[in-house]
Design a protein around this nucleic acid. Structure first.
Length: 825
RNA sequence: GGGCAAGUGGCGGAACUGGCAGACGCGCUGGACUUAGAAUCCAGUGGGGCGACCCGUCAGAGUUCGAGUCUCUGCUUGCCCACCA
């Protein structure tokens, strides 16, 4: 009687290998090695509580990539950590009366367990958590260096205020005028806040996008648009009868003679002097208009409201035409861009036209399309370039030339200059929240704003009940009474440099050692969601350039060489969310289907950049695959003895002529899977869905071969190679099969199967014969068949002859080993 | 409104550089095995036609010996940005 198969007990196998890997430190990465380095990283998670299969897609992909590269001979660094400061912890603390630190610690404990449960190969000796003093101490240290270099500063500015989260938000955190986290409409407030001068790096952040050829084009374009560089002219309109000037920025100085009004934001400083100069009732109207807009966000002012305005009663003087144009205060001019004032040219700007029509302001056309000699009454603003009219001695010029000439003229008069403006604004990092890195600044009655000296770092976050005593301190400079900064930092501060801390996580003298950065940076492959395109990824680039300028990192001044955005995971077409109750958890999936099956499914269901759809049916195919893999290898458990891999391969290669067709198919299937895995990795396309399909084909071939040629060397070859081939994707079963077939070391330390071109090459090809582009015959032919031989074969085919119908072959196209097209007439 | 990406069987997808459309899987149908089911294995599965064949990759045009792939026009869906002067 056959001894009963034990079967494939995935739960037992997965648990067994996870604890053995951990015990043996299999995934520890040495800092020095003979092998070339490779730094693979996924965006670190926020410890929100539980992981679902959406997270798993990200970490599975990163893990497969890291494992592939390790098996291709690299010394791979693959770390993991926790982005642990932030609002959810604080909100949970308020809601349930727990300590945010305890809440966070508990979540980290659970999520670390789940990430390990996913069979990932992280080097946990490098784990970081950004809420630990050992980490945020260096946040403070880096803040102080930015401060020293004038890149961190405090100023009063209109800021985005989220009334629900009770804190300010960075510009990048306002999505459609709403808080990125709670989706409430943000308000505008005038507050004194800390900013990082990211605009000082605007040009480099923009220009260096060209260097990032390993990034998705889409992401680069979005960053380009976010930085929003525009070139133009800044010049001033004197105010008639007042000793005041209003500076404006325009990209269309060629339309200067068409300016019929001046529009200013209610916050513009000139408004105050105007208020003093105009009659009392008009001043009151202006003041109440300004007041009505005070707390309105940019979105509300510009998108949700109609264009409104009040005439100030004052006039500005066009510096070239000397025309008097009325000054209006409007809601549609942004206070924070281009100086908060705009020259209104209704004929050549849609917004100005809209405003002019509503308020009866004149419309003067000064640019006409080149081919139309006389201006027609305008229906829409003519916003393209053209030829100037009614513009004194600039008339007749092209827009382009006029822009140069006008800029020169204004510059010559000392009235203006070429200028560049950015949409990018300085990064507001103050948060009026408890659970974050304290900003290391104290305010002293005598000395004013004083940075905390390095040797007093970290400024420890106090327990929540002790905040008041924390705030009272003494001045580090004069020893007098002082008060600490009560704001904490935006959590994006921590995540802008964490990839450097992984390199040297226990260093207590510096955030990282320069030589570690020299060795490991930059990150060879970064994987994460596209939602961070203008947040984390832009901030990190800014920080890294600052570090580079300080000499703390060397080589490239870009942190992330290659970037990959994985798509999200839906459940039956819907977004997974707790409120829908459709979240597919890691624990339940591990229990029901097994981790290897989950990993295979996530990589197989879609190319990784696409949105994938989780269905409970879908994963059954991968469970089946694993069972078939097991059954295909099981009969050989006691018969496969470890021997040098090359010899088996050489034996087969030498015996090519003697192999049966089935054997060749099997050997080809092994090599086709290997080729796919290697190609998808080095091309960084990561379409492992096609690789896993090749593994399906291999197992199909093995199943078919099991009966026909159980003792063939080709079967043994396949059984020997299959665990290696599947190891990056299904690491547990790979390890178990490897052990069962007599190996004593980990399969994950093996070199990946090197695709053998000779084994891949087909000896016989199918020659497709077309007549006038339609397939009329498929003829088996030896590989390397010549054009003349192919022609002869084709003309010998009866169906081809029928379709030629005795017509003359005018020409033919031959594609080697593939296709012959006969063109007949 | 602007920008970008994508539309292929009942479903997810494959075909990367123009050369056999639908690999692989899910589902479905039939068969084997089973008292029965589950599991497994085998066969089939784009549409039409008895058939040789014909039609077929969102729609329409074009380039080409040959188009899912390239060009143009339109439609649909998704994502991002939306008064930045």
């Amino acid at each position: 009687m056959l001894h009963m198969a034990e079967g494939f007990d995935f739960a037992a196998i997965e648990g067994k290998w996870q604890s053995r890997w951990e015990r043996e430190g299999l995934y520890r990465t040495p800092d020095s090695s003979d092998k070339p380095k490779y730094y693979a990283m996924e965006m670190l998670p926020y410890p929100s509580g539980d992981l679902h299969v959406g997270h798993a897609k990200n970490y599975t992909l990163g893990d497969a990539v890291a494992r592939m590269l390790r098996m291709l001979g690299y010394n791979v660094l693959h770390p993991m950590g926790w982005d642990a400061f932030g609002l959810p912890a604080e909100n949970a603390a308020i809601a349930h009366g727990v300590d945010p630190a305890a809440w966070t610690a508990e979540n980290i404990l659970n999520m670390r367990r789940q990430i390990k449960l996913m069979g990932t190969g992280y080097d946990w000796s490098r784990e970081i958590a950004t809420n630990e003093p050992e980490y945020y101490r260096w946040n403070q240290w880096l803040f102080l260096r930015l401060y020293e270099h004038g890149l961190a500063y405090k100023r009063e500015a209109p800021v985005n205020w989220c009334p629900f989260d009770q804190t300010v938000l960075a510009n990048e955190q306002v999505i459609d005028g709403r808080c990125w986290r709670c989706e409430n409409l943000v308000e505008r407030r005038l507050l004194s806040q800390w900013f990082l001068r990211i605009t000082a790096y605007a040009d480099r952040l923009l220009d260096d996008l060209d260097k990032l050829t390993g990034w998705p084009e889409r992401t680069r374009t979005m960053q380009r648009n976010w930085i929003g560089r525009s070139e133009g002219v800044e010049f001033a309109f004197p105010v008639d009868g007042l000793d005041a000037k209003v500076a404006v920025f325009t990209t269309r100085i060629d339309t200067l003679f068409g300016a019929t009004f001046l529009a200013v934001a209610p916050e513009h400083p000139v408004v105050e002097s105007l208020l003093r100069a105009v009659p009392r009732d008009r001043a009151a109207a202006i003041a109440s208009f300004a007041e009505s807009l005070k707390s309105k966000s940019e979105l509300e002012r510009t998108s949700l409201m109609e264009k409104q305005g009040v005439f100030t009663g004052a006039y500005a003087i066009n510096p070239l035409s000397h025309e008097r144009i009325p000054i209006w205060i409007t809601n549609y001019v942004l206070a924070e861009y281009g100086g908060g004032a705009v020259m209104g040219v209704p004929a050549h700007d849609e917004r100005d036209l809209d405003f002019a029509r509503k308020h009866g302001l004149p419309i003067v056309q000064v640019v006409v399309p080149s081919r139309e000699p006389s201006p027609e009454p305008l229906e829409r603003a003519f916003v393209e370039d053209g030829r100037l009219i009614a513009s004194e001695d600039f008339s007749g010029m092209s827009s382009r030339r006029a822009r140069e000439s006008l800029a020169q003229r204004l510059a010559g008069m000392g009235a203006g200059a070429q200028s560049v403006n950015y949409k990018l604004r300085d990064w507001l990092i103050s948060r009026q929240r408890y659970w974050g890195t304290p900003i290391p600044i104290v305010y002293c009655v005598g000395c004013g704003e004083v940075p905390v000296p390095d040797d007093q770092l970290p400024v420890l976050l106090p327990p929540r009940s002790r905040v008041e005593e924390f705030l009272q301190t003494t001045c580090p400079r004069c020893g007098g009474p002082a008060r600490r900064e009560s704001d904490t930092m935006d959590t994006f501060f921590e995540s802008s440099w964490y990839y450097l801390r992984y390199l040297d996580p226990h260093n207590d003298r510096a955030p990282w050692a320069v030589e570690r950065a020299r060795h490991w940076m930059n990150v060879d492959q970064y994987i994460g969601g596209s939602e961070h395109t203008v947040l984390h990824l832009l901030y990190s680039r800014f920080f890294y350039k600052f570090f580079h300028d300080r000499g703390w990192v060397s080589g490239s001044d870009e942190p992330f060489q290659n970037l990959f955005h994985q798509g999200m995971v839906l459940r039956d077409g819907d977004k997974m969310s707790k409120s829908r109750g459709n979240v597919v958890g890691i624990d339940e999936t591990a229990e029901r289907s097994g981790i290897d099956a989950m990993r295979l499914f996530l990589l197989y269901v879609t190319p990784p950049e696409e949105t994938s759809n989780w269905t409970d049916d879908g994963i059954t195919g991968r469970v089946r695959l694993l069972n078939r893999v097991w059954r295909a290898c099981e009969p050989y458990f006691d018969r496969c003895h470890p021997e040098p891999l090359d010899s088996a391969q050489d034996k087969l290669r030498g015996a090519h002529g003697a192999e049966s067709k089935d054997e060749k198919t099997l050997i080809r299937a092994v090599n086709a899977a290997a080729k796919s895995a290697v190609d998808e990795t080095i091309s960084r396309r990561f379409h492992y869905n096609t690789t896993i399909a090749k593994l399906d084909e291999l197992v199909n071939a093995m199943t078919a071969g099991a009966a026909a040629m159980p003792d063939s060397p080709a079967m043994r070859y396949a059984v020997e190679k299959l665990p290696i081939l599947i190891a990056p994707f299904a690491p547990h079963i790979a390890e178990e099969l490897w052990e069962r077939s007599g190996h004593t070391t980990s399969v994950h330390l093996e070199r990946y199967v090197e695709p053998d071109e000779a084994a891949l090459a087909a000896e016989e090809i199918t020659l497709v014969v077309q007549v006038n582009g339609k397939v009329r015959a498929r003829i088996a032919a030896p590989a390397g068949v010549t054009e003349n031989q192919a022609l002869a074969l084709a003309l010998d085919d009866s169906n081809v002859r029928i379709h030629l119908g005795g017509k003359e072959i005018r020409k033919h196209i031959y594609v080697q080993d593939k296709l012959l097209n006969l063109v007949a007439a």
